[in-house]
Amino acid sequence: MPEASKMKKPDVKLVLLGDMNVGKTSLLHRYTERKFKDTISTVGGAFFLKQWGPYNISIWDTAGREQFHGLGSMYCRGAAAVILTYDVTNWQSLCELEERFLSLTDTANHDCIYAIVGNKVDLTDPKAQLCQDSDVASEDRTECEEERTEPQVPPACPTPPASPASLSGVTVQKQVTPEDAAALYVRILRYKGLEEKNSLPAEKMCFETSAKTGYNVDNLFEALFDLVLPSILRKRNENQESPTVDLEECRGGGNKKAKSGCC
């Protein structure tokens, strides 16, 4: 088989987890295809192989439906990073991350990185509405992906707002704040038995994105790619220290030795 036609082997795996309709598939399409797509619910799971410099990163998109819930732990097995995704206009979608999806990450790597991502921020934040798809010049996209204020971690999750604002306007009420996401991140660290002071800070691991306009999507994936680089290098070093054995060469060498010693 020609070398070019061989399937590239992933160096590391990222997994998207979250309830249905939070926009996991749309985020992946936005990053990989540079455009927004109206998608149907994912069945089971799907993955995309991304070239990041000399490395190959597989990004797994998983189904949020209850009937596919059991597959999540299988897709998370050996993951170097997990993107826990919620809808900023839906408080319940944040709760589901902790109640249904966090336990699925038990099969991920012991040093797995966790990102908390609030999608659909274009519905609540005029700044996120300004970013448009890949036709916009890169410098314009950089301007609209300004850094947001670092959230302060509250001691516990506040009570969710009553209901979304009027849907007749351009924007709807945000039900999940950056502070809520940061508090969840801290609880994830505790669930994993990790000390907050020795872990990546919440302000670096909580993102707000819009798959529709492209707001902050590149920042999300590229920040995670940089963070999993040590895991890639460690894995490659382990493979070099434990090389595979060529059985054909061993058989040939063994036969030659046996033949020369029989006389």
Rank of each mutant, 00 (worst) to 15 (best):
Q173G: 05
V153Y: 02
C157R: 12
F221P: 03
N216V: 07
T159I: 09
L194S: 09
Y191E: 01
P164A: 06
N198I: 04
G214E: 03
E238M: 11
L224Q: 04
A202Q: 05
R187C: 01
A181G: 02
V186R: 04
A202K: 04
L184K: 02
Q152W: 07
A202G: 11
L189W: 01
P230R: 03
A211L: 06
G214C: 09
E195S: 09
M205V: 08
V186F: 07
L167K: 13
V170R: 14
L167A: 12
D218I: 15
R234F: 09
K235Y: 11
E208D: 10
Y191K: 05
L233S: 10
P151I: 06
K212Q: 15
M205W: 06
P160A: 01
T171N: 08
S231N: 11
A165E: 10
N216H: 15
A162M: 06
P161T: 00
N216L: 08
P161F: 00
Q173V: 05
S199H: 02
K212A: 14
T177N: 00
E203W: 09
K235H: 12
P178S: 11
G214K: 08
L233R: 14
L189M: 14
V228A: 09
V217P: 00
T209D: 03
C206K: 04
S199I: 04
I188D: 00
P151T: 05
L220C: 06
K212H: 14
E238G: 08
S163K: 09
I232E: 01
C157E: 10
N237H: 14
E222Y: 14
L189I: 10
N216Q: 15
E196L: 06
E203N: 10
G193N: 00
E238V: 12
P155N: 10
D218V: 15
P201H: 07
V172E: 04
D218Y: 13
K204A: 08
V176G: 00
G214V: 07
K174S: 13
Q240N: 15
V153W: 00
E179A: 15
E241F: 15
P160Y: 01
E238D: 14
G214L: 07
F225H: 03
V228G: 06
E179H: 10
A156F: 04
E208P: 12
V186M: 08
S199E: 00
G193H: 00
N198M: 04
V176A: 00
L194M: 12
L233P: 05
V217G: 02
Q173D: 03
V172D: 02
Q240W: 13
C206L: 08
Q175D: 01
F221C: 13
N198R: 05
Q175P: 05
S199Y: 02
R236C: 02
Y191N: 01
L184T: 02
E238P: 10
A182H: 06
K174F: 11
K204Y: 06
V186W: 06
